[in-house]
Amino acid sequence: MLTAKELMHLEDVLTMEESCAKACNHFASMTQDNQAKQVLQQMAQKDQQHLQTLKKHLSAGQTLQ
């Protein structure tokens, strides 16, 4: 069971992951260096995976309390 405080923390982390994914995608689109572009795209992809996991936990927690 998640408490209200834990849900707030998850929401904060969700917001941070969204910001990180957007920033990585933005910088990947701006760079001309293919290696840097690939690393940034991989980072954005991992952030997206984290977002999906957090969203699952967040929706499950909201139904608990």
Score class of each variant (00 low, 15 high):
Ala21Met: 04
Leu64Lys: 12
Gln41Met: 12
Ala23Thr: 03
Thr3Asp: 04
Ala44His: 03
Gln65Ser: 10
Ala21Ile: 02
Ser29Ala: 13
Ala28Gln: 05
Gln45His: 07
Thr63Met: 11
Thr63Gln: 13
Gln49Trp: 06
His26Thr: 10
Ala60His: 09
His50Arg: 00
Leu10Val: 06
Val13Met: 03
Leu64Phe: 15
Leu54Gly: 00
Thr63Gly: 13
Ala4Glu: 06
Thr53Pro: 00
Ala44Tyr: 03
His50Thr: 02
Leu40Pro: 00
Gln42Arg: 11
Asp47Gly: 04
Met16Phe: 14
Asn34His: 13
Gln45Leu: 06
Val39Gly: 01
His50Asn: 01
Cys20Tyr: 11
Leu40Thr: 05
Leu7Ile: 09
Ser19Tyr: 04
Leu14Ser: 02
Ala28Ser: 10
Gln41Thr: 09
Met16Cys: 09
Met8Trp: 13
Gln65Thr: 09
Leu10Ile: 06
Ala36Trp: 04
Ala36Pro: 01
Gln49Met: 13
Thr63Ala: 11
Gln52Ser: 03
Asn25Pro: 01
Met43Lys: 07
Gln45Val: 05
Ala28Tyr: 13
Ala36Gly: 05
Gln35Phe: 13
Lys46His: 12
Met43Glu: 05
Ala36Cys: 11
Leu51Trp: 02
Leu64Asp: 12
Ala44Lys: 00
Ala28Ile: 03
Cys24Asp: 01
Gln38Glu: 15
Val13Thr: 06
Asp12Val: 06
Thr15Phe: 13
Gln41Phe: 07
Met43Gln: 08
Met1Val: 14
Phe27Thr: 04
Gln38Phe: 11
Asp12Ser: 09
Asn25Ala: 06
Asp33Pro: 04
Gln65Tyr: 14
Lys5Ala: 10
Gln48Glu: 12
Met30Lys: 14
Gln35Thr: 14
Glu18Asp: 08
Cys24Ile: 05
Lys5Leu: 10
Lys55Glu: 10
Ser59Ala: 10
Met1Glu: 14
Phe27Glu: 04
Gln41Asp: 08
Leu7Val: 01
Ala4His: 08
Leu40Glu: 00
Leu54Pro: 02
Gln32Ile: 10
Glu17Phe: 03
Gly61Phe: 03
Gln38Ile: 06
Ala21Gly: 02
His26Asp: 09
Leu40Phe: 02
Thr31Leu: 01
Gln49Glu: 15
Val13Phe: 09
Gln45Ser: 07
Leu54Arg: 02
Ala36Tyr: 04
Thr31Tyr: 01
Asn25Trp: 01
Met16His: 15
Cys20Ile: 09
Gln45Trp: 05
Leu2Cys: 08
Leu2Pro: 02
